[in-house]
């Protein structure tokens, strides 16, 4: 880690940890170890980028949504994601880094976003699977993060969780409707589950034992629950939902264990996980290129708004 804890004032560090242990939120102007700040900069911006890049796989279908109702819902949902990205960028800015800088890091490949958005969405059923599984996994994580130790992040999370509550339901509703439909629709739904199941389990990150930032993040209560625990919560909720509407998760080893009260599943294909993180997923290049293009295309608009605001200010000064 670039910012060694040994370089910090031990008394301040102890006071800081005591606050964390007492569940007192850390606010922007409070003293914090540089490593805590850097950890948050990385995590919150990654979260913000994920929301914003996450608009694309669903944006892919908004112009082809099959009914007025589904079109409106999908638009509102993608709009929420833009909003969540926005809340999170604002929370991340309280750490002393500008939104401009965060976006530059994203464009330069220095900042990551959730790998799950590097998978394509070729059918309408993907709108169901993304809402049900990807948002479902995100919610498990985000509910936990409402108790994160950094005040602005926790407050953004509370707002996000409140707004997200319809996302998973709309996805599951799409899947349920498809399963009540024609043979072609049922196949479409199962195919989407087959493709999104593993990527959504990967969203929780590596096993706790392989997670580079996990233990310090837990100690500082940036993360409140471990990757594996959150993943298990998601699996336990989701498998019965799949079964209820006649879908089957693509894992021959998935079965209920009455002793542990949890589902058992096969292990994730970690080679694929690391491969997509390294940038070799099916859509990595396209997702980033889309964001860079939109940002560049908007440059003259932002410049105009700024120039106009400056002109108005000057007029006020002269008057």
């Amino acid at each position: 880690m670039a910012h060694e804890l040994e370089n910090e004032d031990p008394i301040k560090l102890a006071e800081f940890q005591a606050k964390i242990d007492a569940e007192i939120k850390i606010e922007p102007k409070d003293w914090m170890p540089e490593a805590y700040r850097q950890n948050l900069i990385r995590q919150i911006s990654q979260h913000a980028h994920s929301e914003v890049i996450g608009m694309q796989p669903e944006g892919n279908w908004v112009s082809r949504a099959p009914s007025l109702r589904s079109k409106k819902i999908l638009m509102a949902k993608i709009q929420d994601e833009a909003g969540h990205g926005l809340y999170l960028y604002c929370a991340a800015e309280t750490l002393g880094v500008s939104r401009d800088q965060y976006i530059q890091w994203l464009h330069e490949g220095k900042a990551k976003y959730a790998s799950v958005f590097n998978y394509p969405s070729p059918t309408w059923a993907d709108m169901g699977a993304i809402g049900w599984l990807v948002d479902g996994a995100a919610i498990v994580n985000q509910v936990s993060l409402q108790r994160t130790s950094y005040g602005p992040y926790a407050r953004a999370m509370v707002r996000i969780c409140m707004e997200e509550s319809f996302h998973q339901r709309q996805g599951y509703e799409i899947m349920a409707r498809l399963m009540e439909g024609s043979e072609a629709q049922r196949k479409m739904a199962q195919d989407a589950l087959d493709r999104w199941w593993w990527p959504s389990l990967m969203m929780f990150g590596p096993h706790d034992s392989d997670s580079a930032h996990s233990s310090q993040s837990m100690k500082w209560k940036i993360k409140r629950e471990s990757n594996d625990d959150l993943r298990q919560q998601f699996i336990d909720k989701t498998i019965p939902q799949a079964e209820l509407i006649g879908l089957k998760v693509p894992d021959e080893n998935a079965k209920w264990n009455a002793e542990t009260n949890h589902y058992e599943t096969s292990d994730i294909d970690w080679d694929e996980f690391w491969n997509v993180i390294k940038g070799n997923g099916p859509c990595n290049r396209h997702r980033l290129a889309h964001h860079i293009k939109a940002h560049k295309d908007g440059e003259w608009v932002r410049a105009a708004a700024q120039a106009f605001a400056m002109k108005q200010n000057n007029k006020l000064k002269i008057a």
């Binding site: 914003v52 608009m55 694309q56 944006g59 908004v62 112009s63 079109k71 409106k72 638009m75 509102a76 993608i78 709009q79 833009a82 909003g83 990205g85 926005l86 960028y89 889309h290 964001h291 939109a294 295309d297 908007g298 440059e299 608009v301 932002r302």
Partner: peptide
């Protein structure tokens, strides 16, 4: 307007355009 989602010049404007579309 629905086609333009995720193409706005900045995030606030993207949201506003979607409101108009809705």
């Amino acid at each position: 307007l629905s086609e333009y989602i995720s193409c706005g010049p900045f995030l606030e404007e993207d949201l506003a355009l979607t409101n108009t579309g809705l």
